[in-house]
Design a protein around this nucleic acid. Sequence first.
RNA 1: GCCGGGGUGGCGGAAUCGGCAGACGCAGGCGACUUAAAAUCGCUGGUGGUUUCCACAUGCGGGUUCAAGUCCCGCCCCCGGCACCA
Length: 892
Amino acid sequence: MAERYDPSIVEPKWQRYWRDNDTFRTPDAGDGPRAYILDMFPYPSGAGLHVGHPEGYTATDIVARYKRACGVQVLHPMGWDAFGLPAEQRAIETGAHPAETTAANIATFRRQLQMLGFSYDWSREVDTTDPGYVKWTQWIFLELFERGLAYQSEVSVNWCPALGTVLANEEVKDGLSERGDHPVERRPLRQWVLKITEYADRLLEDLAEVEWPNSTRVMQTEWIGRSDGALVRFALEGDAGEAIEVFTTRPDTLFGATFMAIAPEHPLVDRLTTDAARPAVQAYVAAARNKSDRERQQTKEKSGVFTGGYAINPVNAAKVPVWVADYVLYGYGTGAIMAVPAHDERDFGFAKAYGIPIVEVVSPEGPPTEAPLSEPFVAPGFAVRSGKYDGLATAEFKARIIDDLEARGAGERRVEYKLRDWVFSRQRYWGEPIPIYFPVDVPDGGDPRRGAACTIRYDEPIAMRRDELPLRLPELDDYRPGDDPQGVLARATDWRFFERDGRWYARETNTMPQWAGSCWYFLRFTDPHNDEAPWSPEAAARWLPVDLYVGGAEHAVLHLLYARFWHKVLFDAGLVPVKEPFAKLVHQGMILGEVEYTGYRDEAGVWVSAPDVARRDGVPVRASDGATLEEVRLGEAQVHKDADGGFVLEAALAGAATVQVESRAHKMSKSRGNVVNPDDIVRAYGADAMRVYEMFMGPLEATKPWNAGSIAGVKRFIDRVWAVAVRACAQERDGALDEATLRLLHKTIAKVTEDIEAMRFNTAISAMMVLTNELGRLDAPPREAVATLAQLVHPFAPHLAEEVWEALGRAPSVQAAPWPEADPALCEDPEVEVPVQVNGKVRGRVLLPKDAPADVAVAAGRALPTVAAQLEGKTLRKTIWVPGKILNFIAR
RNA sequence: GCCGGGGUGGCGGAAUCGGCAGACGCAGGCGACUUAAAAUCGCUGGUGGUUUCCACAUGCGGGUUCAAGUCCCGCCCCCGGCACCA
């Protein structure tokens, strides 16, 4: 066998073996425990794999290989989330069809993943852009449509005429497009919308059932944003037939409502406005209309204008002035509020700005506060100045007054959500066509494909027949967005319009957003080649739910919420057997670039200490005078850690002054030039080293910086494992397992097993390093121990493990060998070293039998010279003996 | 501002249930092998001191306890998310 371990030969060898022997084929039959272990599938970008991808993929691979060795049937698939803007952008720039670009990128990704030795069942690969997949995405859309969960609506969007597209809020700055500074207008456009709000409560409640990171459950909870409150009607003064409806979570503060505020878009604005107030109100409304939501929220300064109109408070018949104010959002609740400045931050700010009275109706203690409030009191308390309700605690008051309002017909219980229905249309090319068409009215003999004037009856959407799916994308010469808000596909008139039974029809020209394909890919993996159905009931029952789902926290809300929504719809349709798709979720942390030390220097070459540096538009400037500074990348030798804990420049550079420098790792980015390419790492160290390094960096969930030096250390570990194997095999006679080694072996089995189960891969690796170092010290490492080491190492460094296993003369593959079991009797030492303390400070150690009685321990402890010296001349007050843990003498 | 997660050697991190702080690895120092270097192996490795020992050390300040990185109270800083949602 080879003296040196060469991954460039060994790794492709085993990858070939696994492929030729179908080692990782998913068992589609048979009983016994099963596990569905899933990665968030990647968008195959042109840049290829990033070191962040293999982090999560290695974690799931370790679990998958471990589970298989434990006799569990495993589904561990991989695929491509391949619709998306970059491929389309490339098509615009180079003319290459997005499908070609996508295919090339997928080929690169697949090669890179296979090079890393992941145990995916590649026969189950799916690609969201494949017509065979699109067919079923469209099929599910029809399911939503037929259940009334997909509808069309005029939604106000950011339309940019110059770019010919709708922009996301993030792409608009100060009313101009971020790219090109073109004007953007708010325009209502017909969009397809999915009724996710109908599932809001179930999406909320079922979060309790899943084993997910707390942060992600909190984020989804806040995103859904359920508030329980009341709808209250305030009649207009002088017109009892008309009322302003408000939503409030604090109906207990109704007696403190000193004004009302309605959104500028509110339909009652006109009706409420008196002639005297009209010019001011109209000016205010016009100004608000031209501002985007984002701009309106930019300033926390409250603005508004009095309409001149009044409404009547239903609880005390008080006349309440109605204002128009843009801090009231038209899209939430009823677009109107009752304002209670004493008990609401925003209303308080508004009342202060416009001199509106502030009336306390909730007191923290019980009695009313006489002095004017200096800040709003928003916590629960006791009612004051609230008539017959005085003295009631907030919660009780709320329940009572809602009942009373309901009885009088002035209001009712109401639940509101921040969650909005999901705008599901894009005006782009590279997405799934929506399988809907509309009747078209054309004058006799006209042909809309030739540009004949026609009317599309958008109010009569018709679902395609399921046997007509998939609806494929048309070929286009030009993928550029146009000036037609109907989208790029509107230009493909031959595709768009068709005649059937003497009548013209037009296809929907919007496409689905990128999220569509990822909403159900985990279902397709259970039965990826089914032509009759998106998946079979048997396959779904066999594999669902996903037992372990690993992916980035950036998907905490959108993907994970949308996928849950679709899944629940499919559950209601009887198509999936469980209500939640992902039983356990883990987010891998981000991998940052190497730590960088940065110093700052002004134009005169004088160093500026890091705390004195500010940033203006991303450029470093001196905080005191705003002078532009130069960033200087420093080497480790040029800095050292200061007594205060910060890094400072070496005296050779800084002179007498103390100059603090910035020390931190940055996100990997092309522009910063700190991107690490997996291909380079595999070439230099091998796939196993890359895998083990990424797991050894720290806890999976943590954000951590890349460090090129550490990977060399991991490579040394791999070489040491090989060296031990070489020496074990070179022996004429097998080395004997001494008791100490046997005990260590079993402790390591136990530790690695527990750590994999708990996904603490870094400490599992450290335990294997300890075992390897110990075996390396033996003159003749026993083959039995080396074989067990190979089994333990195998989920982490599979190529190395297979090679060692084969060298030991075992039948391939190590994946087929049952996972080793630790003998509990060998995991505990009969004798333990116990620290001996005097007054809580360690003064020595004694070796004692695990269950030594107190008197034996005390005698042994007192016999230690260092302990005796500490006890000299003192009175022993107390002795604490925790068997096997600690011996502590308390003496005065 | 609110919510969530963090802060431990020069660096990444370990300490899983209140019981030896710093496992394992990187960087550093010393040594072996070598003509030499690389590679490899061994030793060393928080800071300070009067160095077989002692003092001080887990962001800062208090507290509980025989014993605190771990529990409690009050702060500071970093990362992520939300941000007029009534």
